[in-house]
C-alpha cells in the first residue's frame, strides 16, 4: 500500500483512502456528434498504458473527496508528482524537475 500525496490535503495519505480513476487528460469532446465512431472509440477505450511516467487520475474518496491528477512511474510505482484538477499537463521538463526534487 503506497502513500499518495493529495494536492488538496497537502499530505501523504495511505493508498486505501484513494480510488484510482484511470488515465488523465483524456478530453471528453462535447461535440461528440462530430466524431467518427473510431474517434469516439479511441476516447472511450484506447489508452496509453504507459510503461514509465504515466498520467493518471486519483480520487481521494475517503479524504477530501477531490479528484486530482498524478504522474506515476508504472515501472517502480513511485509517484513523481500530483497536481490539482485543472492544472495543465506537466511538461517533460517539469516532470524531470519534480524527479530531482524541484
Amino acid at each position: 500500500m503506497f502513500e499518495v500525496h493529495c494536492p488538496y490535503c497537502n499530505e501523504k495519505r495511505p493508498e486505501i483512502e484513494f480510488a484510482y480513476a484511470g488515465e488523465a487528460h483524456i478530453v471528453r469532446e462535447t461535440k461528440a456528434d462530430e466524431l467518427t465512431d473510431q474517434e469516439w472509440a479511441e476516447f472511450l477505450f484506447y489508452r496509453d498504458n504507459k510503461r514509465g511516467d504515466h498520467h493518471e487520475r486519483w480520487w481521494h474518496q475517503h479524504g477530501c473527496n477531490m479528484f486530482f491528477n498524478a504522474v506515476r512511474n508504472t515501472l517502480t510505482d513511485k509517484f513523481v508528482m500530483t497536481y490539482k484538477m485543472g492544472v495543465k499537463r506537466p511538461t517533460k521538463t517539469q516532470i524531470k524537475a519534480a524527479k530531482n526534487g524541484k
Partner: peptide, 13 residues
C-alpha cells in the same frame, strides 16, 4: 491492484 503497473509488485492489503 487498482492502478496500472509493470512493477510485478503487489500490495499487502
Amino acid at each position: 491492484d487498482q492502478y496500472t503497473s509493470y512493477s510485478q509488485r503487489g500490495a499487502l492489503h
